[in-house]
């Protein structure tokens, strides 16, 4: 179950989103100690998180405050790669409580520009 939310680091960099600080502050996934160890992620390693809406590679962190089965990704483009567009008739997507699969990966975390690179490129021809 993936939830997203605000953090101090995310907030302090939210108006400097092209910075490496923002990248560091929001492109990670926090896991409970139990889940982290079970995945066999190496120190500083990455995970691939997949939901029915999309997938994204983020770095992995332990967080003692998280119960097993819940992962946390700070509010931002990495988390939102995993969130679905439907708003249930109220205008607001469900940003928290998305069923997700997590696996250890050797793939690298895309930076902000890389995350969006394909989007506008695709639109240029239209």
């Amino acid at each position: 179950m993936m939830i997203s939310g605000r953090t101090l680091g995310q907030g302090a960099t939210s108006e400097a989103k092209m910075s490496t600080e923002f990248f560091r502050a929001t492109s990670f996934c926090a896991l409970s100690e139990l889940d982290y160890n079970a995945l066999g992620v190496s120190e500083g390693g990455n995970v691939l998180v997949r939901t029915k809406f999309g997938e994204v590679v983020v770095s992995a962190k332990k967080d003692k405050g998280l119960p097993s089965g819940v992962i946390f990704i700070p509010m931002g483009p990495w988390a939102n790669a995993l969130v679905g567009p439907e708003t249930g008739g109220c205008g607001t997507p469900q940003f928290k409580g998305v069923e997700a699969e997590v696996e250890e990966t050797k793939m690298v975390v895309l930076d902000v520009r890389e995350l969006f690179a394909d989007l506008k490129a695709g639109a240029e021809t239209s």
Binding site: K17, F53, G54, M75, P93
Partner: peptide, 11 residues
């Protein structure tokens, strides 16, 4: 900054 804060499929 909707590009960051909207779901990817909405963006």
């Amino acid at each position: 900054d909707p590009a960051s804060n909207f779901p990817r499929m909405t963006v």
